[in-house]
Nucleic acid binder design. Structure first.
Lengths: 242, 242
DNA sequence: CGCGTTCTTGAACTTTCTCAACGCCAGTGG
DNA sequence: CCACTGGCGTTGAGAAAGTTCAAGAACGCG
């Protein structure tokens, strides 16, 4: 992942890492040549849990997260919801190969977001390379998530979810536990319901999985959103990936 | 979807449509200007059920399906498998934002495939736009699939799967039943096991779902792979999307 | 302090999985 | 030509995992 080191943030090394990152993305990397038409962006702030757009809306604008976390979700007619992506600083969303958005977008925490006219955005040769890298990272994350949704048990799903919040662990080149103990303090940015809709479970099952991890001593929670992972390696082994 | 009409095949209108398409893609659309460095492609034929590359292999080449159907899948350490994408004519695969492939690729039926050097491919300005559209279509399909894996029942999954094989039905602008009856004859290109791994189910559950649909009169099967859908609209309503 | 929301826990129920048996078919070899 | 074999699909019965429904606890907020 070293090849992204020169980026301000490494936003597409893994969309997941953005979740715990406190970093902020620039609206866009500097232009390489003057003739590249860089569309002008419209900067906006969103409070936590604010709708950005709705599945089915005309897809006129493309967005990039500068700061914060955005959730993309889809609904079935009867109200069942599936969160399909979690996006952090650097991630681009709102593209659609149909004329309307294929999912809804909502901020999970307060967010800074730039938006661009979609047509101008897609024509900009400057952005297209950046965009492609971002799309590839999203595809990677979606495939990973398909594995989780299709084949992992509830406990494995929750363990996988928790690992997202631990920087650089459980990845290709996991450095392994370092220093004294293998503890991580994590601030979950999602409610149990949102976690459930992301993991394809019910809220009760998610709650039970947390309790089970607590019972096993792997986890300690102060408030529901504040989690202390006592043994990152152990959680990682519970993800089913190893 | 009219905007893709000028394409030889409309490969990225929806990756799904490629499944039943008998059409063939050109290695790539003609160059717009002479200076575009179009990397040279290496054409290959693969028999049915042939491995193209393995998850973890160094990602040196990028592939495009000219003809046939390719399946991408991931494995967990204990052997659980999840098929993450089904690709048809026009679809591009083998890109990776890591240096190794994040999933394995296998032909489902005999395939014609071109491959390019990944570095050259990613640098080619000619291909970037094409690639971009393809990636967006894949993201759309993956999100749709996340919905299926996370929130749909076994019967809904199988119904959704069947709808993939019926051209233009169940999409945005579904023309509805036309002519006498609403029948479709479908040749499934996958074994029950492959379908199960795609839908996040077991082979038995898939088989039972087929039987249930047969019992309800919606479906008739001659051989397991040859299916007659007696009422497309009814199957469509069983997908859970409406 | 009281209220509403979110989270947790328990018990009954449903769906899907697991394990096992059987049928069908194609290919093989006597 | 026919019996054997192995792969694949179907079906059944019981087990397991997750869902549903319901009640209670914890927390934040006016």
């Amino acid at each position: 992942m070293k090849q992204f080191a020169e980026d301000r943030i490494a936003p597409w090394a893994s969309p997941c890492t953005a979740l715990h990152s406190k970093s902020t993305a620039e609206p866009f990397p500097p232009a390489h040549s003057a003739h590249d038409a860089k569309p002008e962006g419209h900067r906006q702030r969103f409070a936590a849990h604010t709708l950005i757009f709705l599945e089915g809306d005309r897809a006129q604008r493309v967005f990039q997260v500068l700061d914060g976390v955005v959730m993309l979700y889809k609904l079935l007619a009867d109200g069942r919801r599936q969160v399909v992506e979690l996006l952090g600083a650097g991630d681009i969303f709102g593209l659609a190969h149909h004329p309307v958005y294929d999912c809804s977008a909502e901020s999970l925490i307060p967010c800074s977001i730039v938006s661009y006219d979609r047509i101008a955005f897609e024509r900009s040769p400057e952005l297209i390379l950046t965009l492609n890298r971002c799309l590839q990272a999203q595809i990677w994350a979606l495939r990973e998530h398909a594995m989780l949704l299709g084949r992992k048990s509830a406990l494995e799903r929750v363990a996988s979810f928790l690992m997202r919040y631990v920087p650089d662990r459980g990845t290709h080149a996991c450095p392994g536990p370092h220093g004294h103990g293998d503890v991580a303090d994590v601030h979950l940015t999602m409610t149990r319901q949102e976690i459930a809709d992301y993991l394809g479970l019910t809220i009760e099952t998610v709650s039970r999985a947390f309790s089970e991890l607590r019972r096993r001593g792997v986890l300690a929670t102060d408030k529901p959103e504040e989690v202390r992972i006592n043994d990152v390696c152990r959680i990682c082994r519970l993800t089913g990936a190893h």
